[in-house]
């Protein structure tokens, strides 16, 4: 067992671009569910809008990268409006069904042979990140960077790491500002009881829509980071698993807490890497015999843990790490 490698991987993954992507997705979900009470189970679709918006604009229409970013944002807003218009007037669980359906629709379109010319089919798209990195990245794009136990494969990864955390900082600040304002008060009121808020003269539908767009845009930022950090977009990266991970992260950290998704993402990816790397190491060095677990099955164990974690957290510690059990016990929807 190479514990040095395992621990270094754990620390690196806890703050790496992948953790940043899921953190941003979870910040968006936190706006949706934690603050507004909207059951969005299609967060992956918002990330896909960002990623594909950027990739398609740059590779198929030869637009500059910054215009691709704008296209991604616009697509996200359009998707949020499309999802919100039919569902936000309805019972909460309809939104869950429609968002999960929409995310599947987006993924099926993206990987379809019919739209292969534009969307790349199941291979996805790459080659769109060069202009972004070559025009902005101050680091050496080929050289690996190592800071103590933290390791970055090359300058692009280090650059995305810095940009990603800056985005998280900005997103968290905006969420914090919004949620302590009168706007946030209405939003939190809707989470508690939307009829009460309606009876006080607030246009609940409009606020729910604003929250859906706001959280979707935050998720879309995660999509940009995902696309740029991988230098490619692949439809199956935006499957419902992404959404479930983001939910787990949000609940783990503590819903309706600004720091929740950040803490949740770091702990989640740290723990997951720790378990997966330990298991891989153990199977590779035959500490765990192949008859019990093969190396290629470690990924499946990872998903089982996510499912189990989501269940157990929701049952035994629904308030997460930062939440307050007393406050949760007051939940009017219980």
């Amino acid at each position: 067992m190479d514990w040095g490698f395992i621990l270094s991987q754990t620390l690196t993954q806890a703050i790496a671009p992948i953790a940043i992507v899921y953190c941003l997705a979870a910040i968006g979900l936190n706006v949706h569910f934690g603050y507004t009470g909207l059951l969005n189970f299609g967060q992956a679709a918002f990330l896909a809008m960002g990623a594909y918006g950027l990739a398609v604009s740059v590779t198929r229409f030869n637009l500059p990268w910054w215009l691709g970013i704008i296209v991604g944002l616009v697509l996200t807003v359009i998707l949020a409006l499309l999802l919100g218009i039919p569902t936000l007037r309805l019972r909460a669980d309809y939104l869950a069904i429609v968002t999960i359906a929409a995310a599947e629709i987006v993924r099926l379109f993206a990987r379809s042979v019919t739209f292969r010319e534009t969307l790349g089919g199941s291979d996805g798209i790459n080659g769109f990140s060069t202009s972004f990195f070559s025009s902005l990245n101050p680091f050496n794009r080929q050289q690996p960077y190592t800071f103590g136990p933290i390791h970055f494969a090359n300058g692009d990864v280090l650059f995305m790491f810095l940009i990603g955390w800056a985005l998280i900082a900005i997103a968290s600040l905006v969420v914090w500002l919004a949620m302590r304002s009168p706007w946030g008060r209405v939003i939190k009121g809707i989470r508690e009881d939307e009829d009460a808020v309606r009876s006080l003269g607030k246009n609940v539908y409009s606020y729910k829509m604003q929250a859906l767009v706001f959280g979707g845009v935050l998720g879309c930022l995660g999509g940009f980071v995902f696309a740029l950090a991988n230098a490619s977009v692949q439809p199956d990266n935006y499957a419902s698993d992404l959404t479930y991970f983001a939910w787990l992260i949000m609940i783990l950290g503590g819903a309706a807490r600004v720091g929740g998704p950040i803490l949740g993402a770091m702990i989640f990816w740290g723990l997951l890497t720790l378990v997966v790397e330990t298991l891989k190491n153990a199977t590779a060095s035959a500490i765990i015999p192949e008859s019990i677990l093969r190396t290629d099955q470690v990924g499946q164990i990872q998903f089982m843990l996510v499912g189990l974690g989501l269940m157990l957290l929701m049952i035994f510690r629904p308030q997460g790490i930062l939440g307050d059990k007393k406050e949760l016990a007051l939940d009017a929807r219980r």
Partner: peptide, 30 residues
């Protein structure tokens, strides 16, 4: 329909109409 996880004073303030801070962009500028 008290809004359980809001404080009593927040419940009250929610009732006021015509609040400038209830629009998203202004909310970000305290």
């Amino acid at each position: 329909k008290a809004l359980f996880r809001l404080t009593v004073i927040e419940n009250m303030k929610l009732g006021a109409t015509g609040q400038k801070g209830e629009t998203f962009w202004r909310a970000l500028l305290p």
